[in-house]
């Protein structure tokens, strides 16, 4: 009768998993470990890390990638999303946020492409205020509403009034960014990988 000896079977099963693990994660892990952070890459500041945690909390990664492909494979560069990304760009990323969906545009260089803080704040408060037709959800809980008053009044208290267009904010109210919103925008603005890549020589 044909039957596989059980222990041969179990060894085989363990071996296949081990092979895949070694080839796909262990060996590349060792190869990539040798990669140093690129000279132009700055570690995240405290505030940017707080913003990054909000990026993770709100699940931005499910619609936005942070990886750009080389010319000849997609048109990322012609869209102005920046040079192809390399392992040295991600050394400070933990967890990684490469993303695999582009329901919205790539954000690898959003800080360079859209450096306006106001734009980001308005966009987070209601994406359709800056980008008509967008299907991005709004994040009103990153903002506070306050009685309408001249901007100076709030600026004196150290508050940041967001210039949301009138038809997108509650009547007679102004929108004030919370610290969380400012942190998130600080993180987005830090996504600037326009520095050059020195060719890695062997």
């Amino acid at each position: 009768m044909m039957f596989i000896r059980a222990y041969v079977f179990f060894l085989g099963v363990l071996a296949t998993l081990f092979l895949g693990w070694a080839a796909l994660t262990f060996i590349p892990g060792i190869q990539i470990k040798e990669v140093k952070p690129l000279p132009g890459l700055k570690p995240y500041t405290e505030q940017e890390l707080r913003g990054r945690a909000i990026y993770i909390r709100e699940g931005c990664v499910y619609c936005h990638s942070q990886q750009t492909r080389p010319d000849g494979f997609g048109v990322d560069q012609r869209r102005g999303w920046g040079r192809p990304s390399v392992p040295g760009d991600y050394v400070y990323d933990r967890p990684h946020l490469l993303g695999t969906m582009r329901t919205g545009p790539d954000l690898f260089n959003i800080g360079a492409r859209q450096p306006s803080e106001d734009w980001h704040l308005i966009h987070l408060y209601n994406p359709r205020a800056t980008s008509p037709g967008s299907i991005m959800p709004p994040y009103p809980w990153l903002f506070e509403e306050a009685e309408e008053a001249p901007e100076e009044f709030y600026r004196m208290q150290g508050k940041r009034v967001v210039p949301v267009p009138e038809q997108f904010r509650p009547e007679g109210k102004v929108v004030i960014a919370t610290q969380e919103a400012l942190d998130l925008v600080a993180y987005l603005l830090s996504l600037n990988h326009t520095y050059p890549v020195k060719a890695e020589k062997r």
Binding site: P28, Q31, I32, E34, V35, R69, P70, D71, G72, F73, Q77, R83, P84, V86, P87, V197, A199, E200, K201, R202
Partner: peptide, 23 residues
């Protein structure tokens, strides 16, 4: 089988690193 990324068209060319530099 080295740690090189985006080596697409270059294939086996020796100056593989050029792939990293934007065109």
């Amino acid at each position: 089988f080295g740690p090189y990324v985006h080596v697409l068209e270059e294939g086996r060319r020796t100056e593989r690193e050029t792939a990293l530099v934007p065109k």
